[in-house]
Write a protein that binds this DNA or RNA. Sequence first.
DNA 1: TTGTTAGCGTGTCATATGACACATTTTTTT
DNA 2: AAAAAAATGTGTCATATGACACGCTAACAA
Lengths: 189, 189
Amino acid sequence: MLYDYFKGFGELPDNEMDYLLSHCTLNEIRKGDVLITPHHHVDSIYFLEKGYLHYYTYTDLGERVTLKVVSPNVCWTVMESFMNQIPTENECIALTDVRFCEFKRKDYLAIKEKSKSLSNFISRIVEQVLSLKVIEANNKSKMTVEERYLHLLQTNPEMIREVPVSIIASLIGTSRETLHRIRRRLTAA
Amino acid sequence: MLYDYFKGFGELPDNEMDYLLSHCTLNEIRKGDVLITPHHHVDSIYFLEKGYLHYYTYTDLGERVTLKVVSPNVCWTVMESFMNQIPTENECIALTDVRFCEFKRKDYLAIKEKSKSLSNFISRIVEQVLSLKVIEANNKSKMTVEERYLHLLQTNPEMIREVPVSIIASLIGTSRETLHRIRRRLTAA
DNA sequence: TTGTTAGCGTGTCATATGACACATTTTTTT
DNA sequence: AAAAAAATGTGTCATATGACACGCTAACAA
């Protein structure tokens, strides 16, 4: 699965691909388990094979805000913590049972040093992830709450089904009641 | 100025730094001049020395939305267009007279191929920019409009002075009237 | 099985916001 | 210097949203 994901980023000799995959360890956690706690130095890149993660923070007033719901088949980490080796303020827990691959920072750096082709392959992935992040952020700016919901419904209907409404609401930047009104309007039409 | 900016990202041998800087061309444009138009393939990375750029898009209803105000002393480009060589939908114009350095995509790729240290240096910058982008996006999620304004006021007071209120309002995700009310409240207190 | 908790659906109500309109000021153009 | 255009300040008003409250159901633990 991870292999297919990597292949989407371009050619890579078999032996280098093997090298890459050999540094990944497979893990499983249960629904409700904590993956990242505040003040934690995030030291891994995660690739989800199954399940959903809830990444969130708190406002000054103590309200919980969803920053991301991590879906299967994507690479994810707390970028600023991983890259700059600083602690994160945020938390991440499993919304369902989750199976994932993990790359340690140490191995990530070793892979980048191994060869020029591997180094460029990795940076292509980072650039790709960055592009997606930027597009996502821009979409959020230009879309209304309702448009964001419809967009999610189109691009990731499974997530809508599997993740609690209150968390979806927080993700698209509204209250659970307002999301409810939106859904009522949509089913009525 | 660009030299100082680069030095902030770590050590690099003098000759490699010279090589890097030799690929940069200096340009100037006037207030109101257009830098990027829709359907344009963005082919450069820009480093602002002086002035402000306005990067924006339009909603389905034709309303203009500010995606970014580019300030001096930062590197910037339309990431998804530059990285994937696809046309952008968005526009960018100069809000003031602007002086900037420009790296062409061709040179960017050449620099990455030149040596491992240059390649890693570049990817460190990309990772850094990515981190900032993510932090910015997360802050936007967790802050109210007023908090975003106060945050801007603290981190970039010059921008608040130089850029029209209506554009600041759009940047922080509100109308110019609401930003006005916020400012009135703040000066009253 | 029963008790407890978490999530969902829905109503009321106060309020912050966007839309509109218009006066005033500043900037740009002729 | 005068005229035109752009940006800003401010008031009114309808409305979408968040906060709160409460009942219901489903999931989970004892």
